[in-house]
Design a protein around this nucleic acid. Structure first.
Lengths: 381, 381
DNA sequence: TTGTATGCGTTATCAC
DNA sequence: GTGATAACGCATACAA
């Protein structure tokens, strides 16, 4: 590897001078600057971030700790965070923790070891003590998406999140205005404040519209599609009457749809459905479900920016930034039916048909894929 | 920050001994080991990766350079890579380069500065010279998803990708078997080998089925939804006859759907459509489009593993791993119509209605969102 | 089994 | 303007 010393030798100067050129610090005569730049070019020198970091006690790296990058919501948050980071010449280390406290603990330790300059994390509730480690090491930290009970904590965190209560309120009110009185809720795991807040917003909307709350219309589970399907199954088996379902997030919503399809329950003719969180990056291009959409990109972007300002002043008071959500009305509720429009209607299939039609066809074998390449080829996975 | 020396002092040993305990290296008596571990616990010591890395010339970090994390395909690749990395106690730095050569060049430099132990990159074709920097610095590198012309290169890269030719072949053959003879293709940017290969597979399938190839049925553009819509617009305006559209990836596919909807062209009654790449993480939960799906997770996982093996032996011959793709038949082609089944049919709306129905409703203002918090609140974004 | 000395590549400090 | 020196935290070689 080519070091600052190599460059110095070639340019006939001292390493310090090279450093000054690289960092644009102090005064360097135009002549020597050019000599040095030439040498850098010739040798293909790139500064060694670790060495610099060791010296400066900075890594120019942020950590992003998410439940699962596979969810479009988090994906978009990540994109916002990365753009903000890149703009400031920072890199992003990302970790998936799957709403798993153990994984989260482990990742927090790794993040501390990595000496990142800031952490953005959507934490599991029951992990406050471990999160306190971040404070103890004075690592600037922004809590994403969720609320934490900070009563046990010495210092307060910074927060960036959407407004789940208001969002759930809007979504529920929308259903009520369409005439729904029996609205089931397929909720997330209560360890996350978002799940609790969405239930709260739902209840507040019902109350405001003088609709009785029925506890049996709520089911709780993981923020996953499989859980959404399972919860819907459970809900339907209770034999209650309801005309619409509120899915507590996009993954759950997918599961709800799946289970309804399986049971030949049509959307929206037989059952209306709304999601919290949009279900595709650019879902306007394929509009179907009515959703509350959060400003996911902005949440990520704002979180990174909040870290940068925090780095400048570690002792400023803690801040909370709440970004509004937006109701996007599409075809998955009963409204359009009444208006006589032609809604998107999901297919009604017998379970057997369902599996038949979404068959997986084997890849062809009679066809060599590797056209012009002669490199070794493996097919193990 | 608490260092190895602090621990040593508290435990009454030398720093080296602490190092030995932390790294499980050499012999340490049980008694001292316990003393040290106790001290570590008490002080909350975490090893300093940068310092260690400077010494060992390793960072335990991989770089993942993607076009755009916002695309579910890349998201899933990222998840696979992260899981594989985590399993080996490695972290992942991720970068979006948006098919932009400039951004890519910049990121390659950053990645070199970061001294990562390996790089996974889905590169822009016209950037071979810059990619060669990675080889020049002997950074293990895996090329994701694409093929590169390596003729200018001193060394060869490792590759992990799906088989675009075969996949496109299958997708096209599927359409032909359903009776389609005029199949348009909305292709990606030809700088990516995937775009070229998908066109190739498409042409080969046509040829094998003795269907004439019509150059005017292909349009080229970015791998983005907006581009997909624009290309479809362009294609439709040519006034040609065709019964189906092959979208070269999921993003493009979304754009195609959008433009068809805008023009009141029904899917699949008026136009069949297939995508290369699935359009949602768990699209089985919301089955609609017929797609070729790649083993995205496995691609990411395999790429990381390939890096690990490369680290062990930098001089082993270069490898190419090609993962098969799978055709998933759903409702977006003409097949189900002939069978008399009830397909999912996208809504037919006049453009005005379209915008009306997918309206964005303003968030409610008469509702205080911040229930129990007293922290400062900002609303800038 | 444990400790001492040294250096990884960089930059802050101080000297010239 | 430029250079010498020291230090960031850690792990290796070698000594004890």
């Amino acid at each position: 590897m080519v070091t600052i010393t190599d460059v110095a030798k070639l340019a006939g100067v001292s390493p310090v001078t090279v450093s000054r050129v690289v960092n644009d610090s102090d005064y360097v005569s135009k002549a020597t600057r050019e000599k040095v730049e030439h040498a850098i070019e010739e040798l293909g020198y790139v500064p060694h971030f670790m060495a610099r970091g060791l010296r400066l006690n900075r890594t120019f790296t942020l950590a992003l700790v998410l439940p699962d990058i596979t969810n479009v919501f988090w994906t978009t948050v990540a994109r916002g965070a990365e753009d903000a980071a890149m703009k400031n010449n920072f890199s992003i280390l990302f970790y998936n923790v799957d709403e798993d406290v153990k994984k989260q603990d482990r990742v927090v330790d790794i993040v501390l070891s990595q000496q990142v300059d800031g952490v953005m994390i959507a934490p599991h509730d029951s992990d406050i003590k471990h999160l306190a480690k971040l404070q103890h090491n004075r690592v600037p930290t922004v809590i994403l998406d969720r609320i934490l009970d900070e009563s046990q904590l010495e210092h307060k965190f910074d927060f960036v999140r959407g407004d789940s209560i208001s969002g759930a309120y809007q979504l529920t009110r929308h259903l009520v205005r369409l005439g729904h009185k029996r609205i089931a809720m397929v909720s997330g795991n209560l360890h996350a404040s978002t799940a609790r807040d969405r239930v709260l917003g739902y209840r507040m909307a019902l109350q405001d519209q003088a609709i009785p709350f029925d506890e049996d219309l709520i089911v709780y589970g993981e923020f996953k599609a499989s859980a959404g399907a399972a919860m819907t199954h459970q809900l339907l088996d209770r034999g209650l009457t309801f005309t619409s379902i509120f899915a507590a997030n996009n993954m759950i919503g997918m599961g709800v749809v799946r289970e309804l399809l399986r049971r030949n329950i049509r959307i929206p003719e037989d059952m209306s459905i709304v999601f919290y969180d949009d279900y595709a990056t650019d879902s306007d291009y394929f509009p179907f479900f009515t959703v509350i959409t959060q400003q996911a990109y902005e949440i990520g972007y704002a979180a990174a920016e909040m870290l940068f300002s925090r780095m400048v002043n570690l002792d400023m008071p803690s801040r909370t930034q709440i970004l509004p959500s937006t109701l996007i009305v599409r075809y998955s509720c009963g409204a359009q039916i009444k208006d006589g429009k032609s809604p998107l209607s999901l297919p009604v299939l017998a379970p057997s048909e369902f599996h038949q039609t979404t068959s997986r066809v084997k890849p062809i074998e009679d066809f060599s894929s590797d056209a012009g390449e002669s490199s070794a080829k493996e097919s193990n996975q």
